[in-house]
Simulated scan of single mutants.
Amino acid sequence: MLGISLAAQLALPTPAYATRTDNCTASSLPWSPVLYARITKDLPIGSVIPGSTISNTVSIDCTSDWSNDNVWGDTCNGGPNWALSEASETLIRETSRPGVYTFDGLPEYLGYQFMSSSGQPLSLDSEGRHNTGVRIATGQQSVPLDFRLIKISDTTATSTSAELRMYLSCNGNEWGNRNAAGSLVTLHVDIEQITQTCSMVIANTQVVLPTVSSSAFNGVGSAAGSTPFTLEFDCDADAAAKVNISDATTPSNATDILTLQNDSSADGLGVRLTHQGTPVRLAPNQAFDLGGSEFPLDSPGGSQIISLPLAAEYVQKDASVTPGTVQALAVVTIAYD
């Protein structure tokens, strides 16, 4: 009798999980952006495809009815967090490149990533969904969605398109916005292959700043050790491109100061790049049109070498400066008009 009674108790529906999955709303869902990406013949495998990056922060409001502490303990089936699942229930799988994912129907040379706020790919949870790391809760909660496409092979078409349809839900027990249709995230990407391209003449440029005394800094924002250098780009005839610079250590960085790498022993400092005396604003996650400084690379009529003069300098970030070594790493990204 004990076994029968226990089974009956567990099978009883609960208001939020078994019969009600519409206790949360989000005004920004469904979300259906259209992206226009361009892939070049020489884009390295593993690179983000320019134009394929987009971000959105979904604000979700849940009533207290979503929760049933007596049975589930403030969680959803399979975990407590909001997650993204493929809408047609096609199996999402990781490609040969760690943190890059695909599914049947996505072009074979493409992978994708949803990124966390710290710039790391969202992994798959036990239910095969992308775990956002944002826990479901009563009231307002914000779920950041940062998406990008990754080139995973050299098999490309002259033009193609890709579409990802994902549900945002709490592991299937609560929809992000009332129901399945209301919780769709549909990302449509039109992809064009670009044949007139630009490439860096020196792929990896090292800039050595001079040794300076900590007394050279007199407060937050003060700078020292400015060192000029030049990036050169070899552009095909009639190329129409632009370039931005981002922080390799903290990809989401949208300031004008590069984060020091972990093997730096100095503290309280960063490295700032300038162009003609003006600080270079970093592009978050290598994205264009999000406030980062952008520089044109146009070569009408014939191929040419285009120079971008820059300088690097130490800059004080904190109230005090600890002497030591300083290392920072920047990423240069080229996109096409």
Rank of each mutant, 00 (worst) to 15 (best):
D263E: 12
L231V: 05
P50M: 04
A254R: 13
L273S: 02
K317P: 00
A26I: 08
V201I: 10
W72V: 13
T53C: 08
R281D: 01
P210D: 07
G111M: 11
D289L: 10
V326S: 09
V34H: 11
S226L: 12
G133S: 09
G176V: 09
G133Q: 07
G221M: 12
Q140S: 13
I305W: 01
P33G: 10
G277C: 07
G79F: 05
N23W: 05
A7S: 14
Q206V: 13
S116Q: 05
L164G: 14
A11M: 11
M200T: 06
E313C: 01
P300R: 08
G3V: 11
A8T: 08
H188K: 15
Q316M: 05
T227Y: 11
Q120K: 13
A335L: 03
L329M: 11
A181D: 15
T250K: 09
N68R: 06
P279S: 06
L91P: 00
L209Q: 08
P210W: 12
T155M: 04
L184M: 14
V134C: 01
L35I: 09
G291L: 04
V315H: 03
T250I: 12
F229D: 06
R165N: 14
N81C: 11
V326G: 08
S117L: 12
L297C: 07
L282W: 02
G128W: 03
V71A: 14
G46V: 10
L110D: 09
E127N: 15
V48L: 10
K151T: 04
I202T: 15
Y101H: 09
D263T: 10
T40A: 15
S64T: 14
A241P: 02
P279L: 09
P98F: 03
T155P: 00
V48Y: 01
G268S: 12
L149V: 09
A328Q: 07
A8R: 14
E294L: 00
C62A: 10
T274P: 00
A237H: 04
A254K: 10
N179Y: 06
G302L: 03
L145I: 15
V243M: 07
L282N: 01
R272Q: 15
G99T: 06
T53W: 09
N253P: 07
P30L: 12
T322E: 12
D337S: 11
T230I: 15
L122I: 07
A241C: 08
